[in-house]
Design a binder for these strands. Structure first.
Length: 441
DNA sequence: TTTTGAGTTGTTCGA
DNA sequence: GTCGAACAACTCAAA
């Protein structure tokens, strides 16, 4: 069993397939330097902890090898005299070609069972067999298609083999608990407590209203099918099911259009849109990454990302709108920054969330939808608690006025920056640049 | 083939 | 303060 992004023992069809013969399984994880060397400290540290948890649940039998999977997997298969190698299908942008290359060097069958999705990308299509490009009809068809019940566990004897050990990694951030047990506990807690009020509370960054399952789903510590099997039909559960479906929709879009993780689906945004460039823009981008724009909710979000490796979804939209529509910087630059820091960063969801904000993706946000950082802050962080949590310079300001510190007396916060731009002016500028792109025809 | 209705997440302005 | 309209036109999905 070659584990990749399915670091769990329950509801794991590929593992059940591996154990299906005589129950003897060699559990393998490959540290691929081409991936490992480019991952952030946060992601490496989280992975190390998840692998440690997996190894414990395997009674210390996880075989970790370092190197190119094309040689490593074949070597382990040969050493252990395996008669097949089992994986879950990887639908990421790089996985399929790597797996095909491994398959070519492997002397035994590479068996693909299951995927990280309830419905594998490419399975839900329109009547004419082509992929959906609009979410709502996709969602209806996805529900209609349905998914299997959670897979049964199969008795397994773990076969010991030389392991090079889980590598070391650390980061200065306090990460949440990793591993399958933590993932299931996280889901059970959310299911019993949070999902009921999810439709209202999910938009509030000052409350713990979201599931916090993103990083668990990313590494397959829990399968979405496990979650869906538990979900009923209350408002909160329905909205949460739709969030699971968004993850699957964007995976499906990326399966059809792998280049869309870096190329705008509406190509005019890459070729005709007059994006801002130059040293001034670079300085503003830097201010954005550091949480020093002078707009409290934007800065709180960017600092939450930097300090915790996570940002609330509502705030992701606010800071993304700020980058694309107030700073006129291409979405790809923001997407890359997010991926470098997010502990739950999913390549498909990230790229298409950004494309939605920029207005160039599937179901794109209308061009005139420009988030007002003050209005959004007042609406979704009504007491200002979120801002004060991440911006110590503003902690002495009580209540919602923390969203507009410039309305207070002079010297309200001498160590918090002035606004780096005039939002109303940049909103008009964004609309003008959109018109300019259209004129290019 | 043609037609029709619909499309995650907003803001501003004027009555 | 509240509320509806305007903000483009287009593409998509399905009948």
């Amino acid at each position: 069993m070659w584990f990749r992004r399915d670091l769990r023992l329950h509801d794991n069809p590929a593992l059940a397939g591996a154990a299906g013969g005589d129950g003897h399984v060699v559990p393998l994880f490959v540290i691929d330097p081409r991936v490992w060397d480019h991952a952030s400290d946060i992601r490496r540290t989280y992975l190390v902890r998840s692998l440690t948890a997996l190894d414990e649940s395997l009674s210390g039998n996880l075989v970790v090898r370092h190197g190119d999977p094309r040689t490593v997997v074949a070597a382990v298969a040969s050493e252990s005299r395996a008669d097949s190698v089992h994986i879950a299908t990887d639908f990421g942008p790089y996985g399929p070609s790597r797996d095909a290359a491994v398959e070519a060097t492997l002397g035994v069958p590479l068996v693909r069972t299951g995927s990280p999705y309830a419905v594998a990308p490419g399975r839900v299509t329109k009547g004419d067999g082509t992929a959906y490009r609009v979410y709502t009809p996709f969602y209806r068809a996805w529900v209609q298609h349905g998914w299997r019940s959670p897979a049964k566990s199969v008795p397994t004897d773990w076969v010991s083999l030389r392991s090079e050990g889980i590598p070391a990694a650390s980061c200065p951030i306090d990460l949440p608990a990793a591993g399958e047990a933590a993932a299931l506990a996280c889901w059970q807690e959310f299911r019993s407590d949070g999902v009921r009020d999810y439709s209202d509370r999910r938009n509030r960054p000052d409350l713990a209203g979201t599931s916090m399952l993103g990083h668990h789903l990313k590494w397959g510590e829990i399968h979405p099918r496990t979650i869906l099997a538990d979900l009923g039909d209350s408002d909160g559960e329905e909205v949460f099911r739709k969030e699971i479906a968004w993850r699957e929709f964007y995976a499906d879009v990326c399966h059809q259009r792998p280049d869309s993780i870096r190329v705008s689906l509406d190509r005019r945004y890459d070729t005709d849109f007059p994006w801002a460039t130059g040293p001034e823009t670079d300085a503003r981008f830097e201010a954005w990454t550091q949480g020093l724009t002078g707009f409290p909710v934007v800065d709180a979000g960017m600092r939450q990302l930097r300090e915790t490796g996570w940002m609330h979804n509502r705030v992701r939209m606010i800071v993304a709108s700020f980058l694309v529509k107030d700073l006129h910087i291409p979405w790809q630059r923001g997407a890359a920054h997010f991926m470098s820091l997010l502990r739950d960063g999913d390549i498909a969801s990230n790229a298409h969330g950004w494309q939605w904000t920029a207005g160039c993706g599937t179901d794109a946000s209308p061009y005139y939808r420009v988030f007002n950082p003050v209005t959004q802050g007042l609406k979704f962080d009504p007491d200002g608690d979120y801002v004060r949590t991440y911006i110590p310079e503003l902690r002495h300001i009580a209540g919602k006025s923390v969203h507009e510190p410039w309305t207070l007396l002079d010297g309200y916060a001498h160590d918090y920056p002035e606004r780096i731009l005039d939002h109303a002016a940049e909103r008009n500028e964004a609309l003008a640049r959109f018109s300019a792109m259209k004129e290019m025809n």
